[in-house]
């Protein structure tokens, strides 16, 4: 079974994507070629942008099952309306009107169970696409891409996660920003969670919210401080008070930010940053081997 790591952060733009793709790149090069990166930031999937030579293996539509009512069988009893917690069904007996509003439907299936006349059936409606890419020389990247205008991001994340392969050693989930249901869905299957933060008041505040969430879920976590050197020391103070492990600190370098901006991040990595990634990965390997019970990964 693969060791599954989720990279998350409450605040946006702290460097989740940078960290996730660097871990993917370095692990695939130095530790094991059997690694998969799953981009769960389905609203704005960016991981693949940094791999212009990626080869597309498969693309498939992701769908949500939307129920429809067959008016010829409907008796307008309104039982489905009573069972629908999301107010998605409109039945108006005097005028013989029965319809389900797909944008309110959560596809829970309650109306189908409720209907005693077999008048409700489901058909798929597209909410996005799921793609899988091969990366040269090693590794697989999977991504979910939400259809514009769809609000079903959590369902799409659930489906993208089903792309997880069994015959890899590591899986990295790149989470969306925030602390609400899409993040919970992303980290739910992870064995270990990396929280990425920046040493600023916004970074700290959102980090606290995310730590609270991860502790509620009951998963082990460690923190990477990105853009170290900017801002203040309060993130460090908080982490030491809470006895949270700092996996590493990536210093802020303007030239490196420019390289990231351009999309080429694996070339000319400053030595100090490379050393940080190496030490972070070594810490993760210890975690993975204590999880696996064996010790065949090394950098």
């Amino acid at each position: 079974m693969p060791f599954k790591i989720a990279v998350a952060s409450g605040k946006g733009g702290t460097g989740k994507t940078t960290i996730a793709i660097n871990l993917f790149h370095n692990i695939s090069k130095e530790v094991t070629p059997k690694i998969q990166l799953i981009d769960c930031d389905v609203e704005e999937p960016n991981d693949i942008l940094f791999f212009p030579d990626a080869k597309l293996n498969s693309a498939q539509p992701a769908t949500q099952s939307i129920p429809t009512i067959d008016n010829s069988k409907c008796t307008y009893c309104r039982k489905c309306v009573e069972w629908c917690e999301f107010n998605a069904i409109v039945v108006i007996p005097p005028v013989g009107f029965a319809e389900i509003n797909s944008s309110l439907c959560h596809s829970c299936g309650a109306c189908i169970v409720a209907c005693e006349y077999g008048a409700i059936s489901e058909k798929p409606e597209e909410i996005g696409t799921i793609k899988q890419y091969s990366i040269d020389p090693h590794g697989i990247i999977s991504e979910g891409r939400l259809k514009i205008g769809s609000a079903m991001q959590t369902l799409l994340i659930k489906q993208v996660k089903q792309q997880a392969l069994d015959d890899v050693d590591f899986i990295i989930f790149d989470a969306p920003p925030g602390t609400s249901c899409p993040v919970v869905e992303t980290v739910a299957d992870a064995d270990y969670i990396i929280l990425v933060t920046e040493p600023t008041p916004f970074g700290l505040y959102d980090l606290k919210l995310t730590v609270e969430l991860v502790r509620d879920i009951g998963k082990p976590l460690g923190v990477i401080i990105n853009k170290a050197g900017l801002g203040d020391h309060k993130v460090h103070d908080y982490l030491s008070e809470e006895h949270i492990e700092i996996l590493g600190e990536i210093p802020y370098r303007r030239e490196y930010a420019a390289q990231y901006a351009k999309g080429d991040i694996f070339e000319k990595i400053p030595g100090e940053i490379k050393a940080q990634y190496k030490s972070i990965i070594q810490k993760l390997l210890v975690r993975s081997t204590s999880y696996e019970g064996d010790n065949h990964f090394k950098w």
Partner: peptide, 18 residues
């Protein structure tokens, strides 16, 4: 007080009221 779909439900009521 419902969490979602208040507009649709109210529209439904309007149709029922004629």
């Amino acid at each position: 007080e419902v969490t979602g779909g208040a507009g649709v439900k109210t529209a439904e009521k309007m149709v029922e009221l004629g």
